[in-house]
């Protein structure tokens, strides 16, 4: 299942708050798509620390798409 959070019109740190709340509900095999206006550097540190994986893709209009998955034990 894919969940989408469009943070482009939200005031920081709302997108990050929503994302962290959504991560708590993310199960293996699901992914979370984030749409943001800027590269969420602080998020990456938190993701790494808690063992999530992500892909980032810069869009032509300067925005970013981040896809987050839960790490599978042993994958790292």
């Amino acid at each position: 299942m894919r969940r989408v959070i469009d943070g482009r019109d939200l005031l920081p740190p709302e997108p990050l708050e929503l994302t962290l709340a959504a991560l708590d509900q993310l199960t293996e095999g699901d992914d979370l798509l984030l749409l943001l206006n800027c590269r969420p550097a602080p998020l990456f540190g938190i993701l790494r620390r808690h063992g999530y994986f992500w892909d980032e893709c810069a869009q032509g209009d300067g925005s970013f798409e981040i896809t987050i998955r839960k790490g599978i034990v042993g994958e790292q």
Binding site: A41, F44, G45, R48, F53
Partner: peptide, 11 residues
């Protein structure tokens, strides 16, 4: 996975 030096380095 992209490197994220920025926040790791945050003072």
């Amino acid at each position: 996975m992209p490197a994220d030096l920025s926040f790791e380095q945050a003072p």
